Computed example of a mutant assay.
Amino acid sequence: MAAAKRLVAQQGDMLDLLIWREAGLGPSELTRVLNANPGLVDSGAVLPLGTVVIIPATADAVTTRVRPLIQLWD
C-alpha cells in the first residue's frame, strides 16, 4: 500500500491540474481527493497559493504516469 501524498498548490493551480501534474491522477480521482480534504471545495476554482492537498493512499492507486515519447526529427 502506498503512503498518502501531500501536494502544494502553485499560483493559479486548479485541483484537477494539480493532481494531474504532481500525481498523474485523472478526473475520476477528484471525488476521492475532495473527500480526503474537507473544506477544499470552499477555496474556489483556483486554489490559493500554498494550499496543501492530501492524496489518500489506496492499494490499487497507480501514482506513476507514462508520457508518450515525442520525436521532433527522425
Rank of each mutant, 00 (worst) to 15 (best):
M1H: 06
M1G: 06
A2Y: 11
A3F: 13
A3Q: 14
A4W: 01
K5V: 10
R6K: 15
L7V: 07
V8Y: 11
V8M: 03
A9N: 08
A9Y: 04
A9L: 05
Q10R: 13
Q11L: 10
Q11D: 11
Q11S: 13
Q11E: 14
G12R: 10
G12D: 11
D13C: 08
D13V: 09
M14N: 08
M14H: 09
M14P: 00
L15I: 12
L15E: 06
D16P: 00
L17Y: 11
L18P: 01
L18R: 05
L18M: 09
L18H: 03
L18V: 07
I19G: 03
I19F: 13
R21F: 03
E22G: 01
E22V: 06
E22M: 09
A23F: 15
A23G: 07
G24V: 08
L25M: 12
G26N: 13
G26P: 01
P27N: 03
P27K: 10
S28F: 00
S28V: 12
S28R: 15
L30V: 08
L30P: 02
L30W: 06
L30I: 13
T31I: 03
T31E: 12
T31F: 07
R32G: 03
V33F: 11
L34T: 04
L34Q: 08
N35C: 04
N35F: 10
N35H: 10
A36R: 05
A36Q: 04
N37K: 09
N37Y: 12
N37W: 14
N37F: 14
N37V: 05
L40G: 04
L40N: 02
V41L: 14
V41T: 12
D42F: 04
D42T: 13
S43G: 00
L47P: 08
L47M: 03
L47W: 04
G50P: 15
T51W: 02
T51A: 02
V52F: 00
V53S: 01
V53M: 05
V53Q: 02
V53P: 01
V53L: 02
I54D: 01
I54C: 00
I54L: 10
I55Q: 02
P56W: 09
P56K: 02
P56E: 05
P56N: 04
A57R: 13
A57V: 04
T58G: 02
T58R: 14
A61S: 08
T63S: 02
T63D: 01
T63N: 04
T63Y: 03
T64W: 06
T64K: 03
T64I: 09
R65Y: 11
V66Q: 12
R67D: 02
I70Y: 14
L72A: 07
L72Y: 10
W73F: 09
D74N: 11
D74Q: 13
D74K: 12
